[in-house]
Amino acid sequence: MIEIIEAAALATVQDLGRVGALNLGVGLAGVMDPMALSAGNILLGNEEGAAAIEIPLFPFTVRFRQSIDFTVTGADCAPSLDGRPVQPWFACRAEAGTTLTLSVPAAAAWPAARAYLCVAGGVDVPLVLGSRSTQLRGSFGGHLGRPLRNGDVVPTGVAKGTASGIGLVPPSLDIPVSVDGVPAVRVLPAAEYEAFTPEAHQRLWSCAWRITPQSDRYGFRLGGDELIPTAPLELRSHGIVPGVIQVPHGGQPIIQMRDAQPSGGYPKIGVVIEADLWRLGQAPIGSRIRFLRCTWDEALDAGAANRRWLEKARRTVSILADRRTV
């Protein structure tokens, strides 16, 4: 059991998302940074998709009611256990009754917005429609279908594997993507790409887009040059997915994120490829990102690179963890 002592707003229980319920109008939800979740679970010997707590705002303080292995991945929020520093992206042991405090992320080699508190055995809230992720619209999944509050007690599962006691280098440092020194995400043009002006195309690929404060798990509103279609577009409602870059009438793009509604009708100029959504999900408010045009094959290769990184992490962690216990 984990007791929430101090939760800043919008901390939620998430796993890799709720797949297969789109025909009920139920979107994906799930972590904004799936690489950080999977890495944390690998360090703890969990299944890769075990649920964790996603923390977008700080400080965040919990008390462990029993001894448990845990790790804090994602943004480096200077985790400390009963006042003693613990390393980010490391599996650590917490004794019963100890208090873990996460602070506002400081300047780091990888500026990131969200931290993940993963525990051995995972956060054991009930599966709803196949997932433990919090679905805010409709209020189900996660912990009582809502963000965590002070005093909440979150159940943890039975640890199946062995926590490694070691750490991982965040994949953002291992497999970075940037253009002219600005963090980048790869984009495939979408259905209405050709309906935008040549200026809009040029701007899309050359602007360093600012993540505005109106950005959250639903969508990232970007600040930058206006993207204008050659003529007004009327679309019929259709399914959309996280990563879709919609351009409403004002010309300022919005990228759909994990809590976005699963259908829409605004013109789509492009879609951030699934393999780079974790990079975007960690972009802090006020930071800038570039869009990097890619081909279908490059997009699939990017997904394969993520899987290779996780596979290598799993293999190396298990080898080193074995040597430590000998």
Binding site: V187, L188, P189, A190, A191, L233, E234, L235, R236, H238, G239, I240, V241, P242, G243, V244, K268, V271, V272, I273, E274, A275, W296, A299, L300, G303
Partner: peptide
């Protein structure tokens, strides 16, 4: 949007829209 032929487009690598 009306056209005489069905249209397909990508939603990134996640999906295809018909």
């Amino acid at each position: 949007m009306t056209a005489s032929h069905p249209r397909t487009s990508l939603l990134g690598t996640t999906a295809l829209l018909f």
